[in-house]
């Protein structure tokens, strides 16, 4: 830190965790966040042979898989929307979310050589994962728009609502990414639990089918999935399907609570991180 005025740092074993100061400090390390994001993006596309192509291949494979199961085999009702387009619209936020949550889990353990040797707000590590994955979200949206053009869908003003829904998607990634990162440090079992939950999540999120198909008595549990409201919102914005504002509100509340609790838990764990990774 290069501050200009002399300041006093007090490290007291007996003092409580200074949550607000730690949050403020994370903002002060903005330049480091930028570099970590830059590194994540650069390295990901520099290292593999196909590079950038993977950001296309992953969501396309997921879409084709879900389209095969729900669109061809089960033939679910998609309100007259072509099933492939329907699934593609549904996958946008899920693809981002699963990538961030999948990456964030091991992120701190992966950076342990750094975490053990230099101090910086560790919350930046999962945060950088969530921010660098925005590139994937943009790529998926590009695929979606290419498909919209191919299906000759005309532009609707509601499509602009993709922007706030995307922002909400990013917040869901940050919120759950921070949780998964801290839980994985503390309980290594989470490196097995997370992929399992993500696999389940791909089928219990309304990606290739509509939330309306879920029986009413299970609907409340279904809506607790923070992505339900977002995915339904995407489909409303792009395809003009029916929109359930209750599930969106539930999503916003769940994401906010998870984010606040996640930051709180992470900062509480922060002082032990170097000792336990």
């Amino acid at each position: 830190m290069s501050s200009t005025k002399p300041n006093v740092t007090i490290i007291d074993a007996a003092s409580p965790v200074p949550y607000f100061r730690k949050i403020k400090e994370a903002f002060q390390y903005y330049d480091l966040l930028v570099m970590l994001v830059y590194r994540d993006i650069r390295v990901r596309y520099a290292q593999t042979f196909f590079g950038m192509a993977w950001a296309f291949i992953n969501p396309v494979v997921s879409v084709l898989l879900l389209y095969f199961v729900f669109g061809i085999v089960i033939k679910v009702d998609t309100n007259g929307v072509p099933p492939l387009l329907y699934t593609m619209t549904g996958i946008c936020s899920w693809n981002y979310f699963s990538r961030v949550v999948g990456d964030a889990g091991g992120s701190i353990i992966g950076a342990q050589s750094l975490v053990k040797k230099v101090y910086f707000p560790r919350i930046l590590i999962p945060l950088a994962k969530a921010i660098s994955a925005i590139l994937d979200l943009i790529i998926v949206l590009v695929i979606l728009f290419i498909m919209l053009a191919a299906y000759q869908m005309s532009f609707r003003w509601q499509m602009l609502m993709i922007i706030p829904f995307s922002i909400l998607t990013v917040f869901s990634g940050i919120a759950f990414g921070i949780w998964v990162a801290s839980l994985t440090i503390r309980f290594r079992d989470f490196s097995h639990i997370v992929p399992l939950v993500l696999r389940i999540g791909m089928f219990v999120s309304p990606i290739a089918y509509g939330a309306a198909l879920v029986p009413v008595e299970y609907r409340w549990a279904f809506n607790l999935n923070p992505l339900t409201g977002i995915i339904e919102g995407f489909k409303w914005a792009v395809l003009g399907t029916e929109f359930n504002s209750a599930s969106l509100i539930t999503s916003v509340i769940v994401i906010s609570l998870v984010l606040i609790a996640g930051v709180w838990y992470f900062l509480r764990l922060d002082k032990y991180i170097a000792d336990i990774v």
Partner: peptide, 14 residues
């Protein structure tokens, strides 16, 4: 990087 179990440290400046 790590936190003391007991005691207090005061640091003046960066």
């Amino acid at each position: 990087i790590t936190f003391p179990t007991q005691g207090r440290i005061m640091i003046q400046g960066t």
